[in-house]
Amino acid sequence: LGYIYNGWGHANLPPWSMGFVYLPALVWMVPASMLIAPLGARLAHRLPVSTLKRIFACVLIALAAKMLWNFFS
């Protein structure tokens, strides 16, 4: 709701947006999240903590590498 409120009336927003929320993306992301979230929760309870920490560290390293790549290119 905050993104809708704060973005309401801003210029140069794409069509089909409500504030800073792009409605076509919202329509696809909500059902996908609802379907995948239980799978992720089940997986998180089954995997050992050390494996989860390694996966999370790899995701953070990949995101940092992408941010650095975008910054310097």
Results as ranks from 00 to 15, higher is better:
A62P: 08
L63D: 13
M67D: 04
P24V: 08
P24I: 05
F72V: 01
I55P: 01
G40L: 02
H45P: 03
A32Y: 11
I4Q: 04
L23F: 14
R42D: 13
L1P: 12
L39K: 03
L39I: 14
A65Q: 00
L35Y: 00
S17N: 10
I36S: 08
G19P: 04
P38W: 07
A62S: 12
M29G: 14
F71H: 11
A44N: 10
N70S: 09
A57S: 12
S50R: 11
R54W: 08
L13V: 13
M29T: 15
P14K: 04
W69D: 00
L63V: 11
I36F: 08
F56N: 14
C58S: 14
P48R: 11
F71T: 02
L13W: 02
A37L: 14
L35P: 06
G40A: 02
F56M: 15
K53I: 12
F56L: 15
T51C: 10
A64H: 02
W16G: 07
P14G: 09
I55Y: 06
G9A: 07
P48K: 08
F56V: 05
P38L: 03
A37M: 12
L39V: 13
M18C: 12
V59P: 00
G2P: 01
L43R: 03
F71M: 12
W28I: 14
Y3A: 10
A65F: 05
K53A: 15
L35N: 00
P38N: 12
I4H: 07
C58Y: 09
T51W: 12
S17F: 05
Y5W: 15
L23H: 01
M34A: 09
N6D: 13
L52E: 11
G19D: 02
G2C: 09
P24R: 03
W8C: 10
R54L: 10
L68Y: 07
F20Q: 00
I61L: 14
F71V: 02
V21Q: 09
A25N: 02
L35H: 06
P38I: 04
V49N: 01
Y5D: 14
L47A: 12
L1F: 13
L35I: 10
M29C: 10
I36N: 05
Y22S: 09
S50A: 06
I4G: 01
W69T: 06
I4F: 03
A25M: 06
V30M: 04
N70H: 07
C58D: 08
S73P: 11
W28P: 05
R42S: 13
V27P: 09
M67P: 01
C58R: 00
L39P: 01
I55R: 00
L52H: 08
I61N: 01
Y22M: 03
V27C: 13
